[in-house]
Design a binder for these strands. Structure first.
Lengths: 255, 255
DNA sequence: CGGGATATTGAACGGCATCAACGTGCGTGG
DNA sequence: CCACGCACGTTGATGCCGTTCAATATCCCG
C-alpha cells in the first residue's frame, strides 16, 4: 500500500504499460487509466516454480501477468491435480477467489515472472465509479467462462490428436496477439503439465507431438515448436472421429 | 419500462419471489430489491425442448430460472455437441454472452419452464449504482468459473464411476438447497445429456447407474433416483484409481 | 393403442493409460 | 569449465476402460 518509494516493489503505471490494450484497462480513456494507477501500485516478482497464491489462501487481489507465464492448478481432495489454465502477459489471475473469498486454485510461475497487484476491494470501488471499467471487467469474467466451456468441450469430446492440435493453435494465436511469431515458439510448460491440462498422460502428449512431426505438421525439439502446417492442424479439429472413408487417402488401410 | 398490465408476460417481482435468496438478489435490502424489480419486468415461458436463446444470437439479457430447468449446449464447428451445464431454479443463464455480445451456447428447456428476463444494459447501470448488487454479480460470475473448473477436473482426471458419483452428489445437494429431498429426485435429462456433460457415452452412463444399483448405492428406475448410500458415493470420489488393494473388501476378487 | 424416443444389456474392439527402459539436455557444484 | 546427476522427454509393449455396434425392452405421448 502507501504509494511513493517502495523498496523492492516497482510502481505499476498502467498508463505507460505496453500491455494496456491486452489487459484489464482496454479502451479506458487516459483519465481513468490514471485512477486505475492509483490502486495498481505493487508489482511482484516470482521465480520459476514459485506460487503467486495457493489454494485456500484468503483472496485479496487480482493479478495481471506483466512478464512471464503461469499455470493454475486445482488440487482434488485425493491429491490428484488438474491444470486449469496457462496465463500469459496481460491475462488476469485470481478470478476464482471472488466467489468465496478464498482462492480455489494455486497459481505457479512457469518461468521467472512479474505481476501487477490489483487489490480487489479497491477495484470494486473504482469499478462502481467507472462504468467502462466495470463493463470491461464483466467481459473478462465472461470470456473466462467461455474459455473454460471450450476446454470442457475439448476434454469431453475430443480425441488426443484434436486436443493437442487445439492447444497448439490456441498458443499460436495468443503468441501472435502479443507480437510474437505464431509459428515458432517455446513451450513454457512440461509435457506433464500439458497433459494435465488436456486430460492426457505425458506419454500421450509426447507421442502425439512425434506423430504430428512425422506427419509434417510441425517440428518439435524439446520445448521448441515450429508449426509448419497450421491449416493441417485446423483440419484435424474439424474432422470428427474417423467415421470411415474420408481420410482413407491418408491412411491407406482403414485400420 | 411500462409497468402495469402486460398481455402474456407477468411482472417479475423479485421482492416477493421465493427464490430471492438463491438468485441474483441475495442479501439486497428491500429498497434495492424494488429497484431491481423495475428492470426485471418480463417473464418468459418455455415448453420442453424449446430454446431460450441459441448460439450466435445477439446477447441482450440474462435470465434467471424461475421454474423448471435447462441445459446449456456448446456446438462445435463439426456438429458435435457438449452439454456445458444444467441449470435449476434461481440459477442464471446467459453469462457466456457478456464477453462478445453474442451467445456462445444454446439454452434449452428440459421441461416446461419459466425465466425472469434481466436486460443486461440496465443491469449494468443499476449495478454501478448499487455496489452490493455489483459485488454479488461478480461472485456469481466467479462461482461459475469455479464450477467449470470443477467440471474440467472431472473430465480431465476422473473415471466414469467417479464422474457419475460427483454428478449425482451435486444434483442431490442442489435439490436439497431448494428444499427438495436430497435422496429422492427425478432426473430432468436423458442419459445422453448426462453423458455429454460428463464426457461419456449414454451406454456408459446407463451401465454405471446399473452398477451403482447393483452395489447398493442407489435405486434407479428410468429417471427416478433414490440415493441409498451417499457416503458410499463420496468414497468413490475420494478413492483414486484402483491402485491395488484397498477395496479388496468391497470386491472380493480383484476383478 | 401404436410408435418413436429412451433405456438397458451384451460382445468385441480400440485408444489411451500403464509400466518400463532408455536418451538427452541442463543446471549446479566441484 | 567440465562432469556429474537429475529432471525431462522419447519410445516400446501390454492391458484395461470406455466406446462402438447391435439387439431388445419399456415408457410415454399423441
Amino acid at each position: 500500500m502507501r504509494p511513493g518509494s517502495l523498496p523492492e516493489q516497482l510502481r505499476a503505471a498502467c498508463a505507460h504499460c505496453n500491455l494496456v490494450d491486452l489487459c484489464l484497462p482496454v479502451g479506458l480513456p487516459e483519465e481513468d487509466l490514471k485512477r486505475l494507477d492509483t490502486l495498481v501500485t505493487v508489482r511482484k516478482r516470482l521465480k520459476r516454480h514459485q506460487a503467486l497464491f495457493e489454494s485456500q489462501f484468503p483472496f485479496e487481489a487480482l493479478y495481471a501477468v506483466r512478464l512471464g507465464s503461469f499455470k493454475t492448478v486445482l488440487t482434488l481432495s485425493d491429491g490428484r491435480e488438474q491444470v486449469t489454465g496457462f496465463q500469459m502477459t496481460g491475462e488476469l489471475l485470481g478470478l476464482d477467489g471472488i466467489g468465496s473469498g478464498r482462492h480455489v486454485v494455486s497459481a505457479i510461475a512457469l518461468e521467472d515472472s512479474e505481476v501487477c497487484t490489483i487489490p480487489y476491494e479497491q477495484l470494486e470501488t473504482l469499478a462502481s465509479k467507472i462504468p467502462a471499467l466495470m463493463s470491461e471487467f464483466h467481459k473478462i469474467l465472461s470470456r473466462e467462462i467461455v474459455r473454460e466451456q471450450g476446454v470442457m468441450t475439448l476434454l469431453g469430446s475430443m480425441r488426443a490428436e484434436e486436443r493437442l492440435a487445439a492447444f497448439l493453435l490456441n498458443l499460436s494465436q495468443r503468441f501472435a496477439a502479443r507480437g510474437f511469431s505464431p509459428t515458432q515458439f517455446r513451450l513454457r510448460m512440461t509435457r506433464e503439465e500439458i497433459g494435465s491440462y488436456l486430460g492426457l498422460k505425458l506419454e500421450t502428449v509426447s507421442r502425439t507431438l512425434s506423430a504430428f512431426q512425422e506427419a509434417g505438421y510441425l517440428r518439435v525439439n524439446r520445448r521448441e515448436i515450429a508449426l509448419a502446417n497450421r491449416e493441417g492442424l485446423r483440419q484435424i479439429l474439424s474432422a470428427s472421429p474417423p467415421t470411415s472413408t474420408e481420410n482413407a487417402a491418408a491412411t491407406p488401410n482403414g485400420n
